[in-house]
């Protein structure tokens, strides 16, 4: 399995290619939309490139879930994510920094959950799980 650093470097290269940004701009805390200028179609492009780069399949919605709250007032009220909504986010985005978001849970800031670090954590988890499931060949 690649090390954390190797995963990070590959993610940086992926985002540089996909979003046409400079490598220096891709910091762990950089947000995909706000800092790196990703648009909705770029998310699918990033998924394709990560699949190719890491030799894995990323099921739809697993890394970048779409329309999490579906306008349900249980989850969003007055432009803020409710405690139930925060719980849902923890389930749907287990690799995002939900704790920081929960301090000021503005719905408009939800895209800030999608960071470079989030992608790296997801990949670390995926590759670990896959390694554990693979047959041992000693």
């Amino acid at each position: 399995m690649p090390s954390k650093q190797e995963i990070y470097e590959k993610v940086v290269a992926t985002l540089v290619d996909s979003l046409n940004v400079e490598p220096e701009e891709v910091r762990p805390e950089a947000t995909l939309q706000g800092d790196l200028g990703a648009e909705s179609i770029d998310f699918l492009d990033i998924v394709f490139r990560l699949e190719r780069g890491f030799g894995i399949k990323i099921p739809r919605g697993e890394l970048f879930p779409e329309s999490i709250f579906q306008g349900d007032p249980q989850y969003v009220q007055d432009g803020k994510v409710t405690p139930q909504g925060i719980e849902l986010l923890r389930q749907k985005l287990p690799f995002a920094d939900i704790d920081s978001f929960a301090k000021d849970p503005q719905l408009s800031k939800i895209s800030d959950l999608f960071t470079v670090e989030m992608i790296c954590r997801y990949l670390e988890h995926r590759l670990q799980t896959e390694e554990a499931a693979a047959p041992q060949t000693h």
């Binding site: 179609i41 699918l44 492009d45 394709f48 699949e51 190719r52 739809r60």
Partner: peptide, 10 residues
């Protein structure tokens, strides 16, 4: 064709 899935293709 590099990638093809429900949402799109490259």
């Amino acid at each position: 064709l590099l990638d093809l899935r429900e949402e799109g293709a490259t």
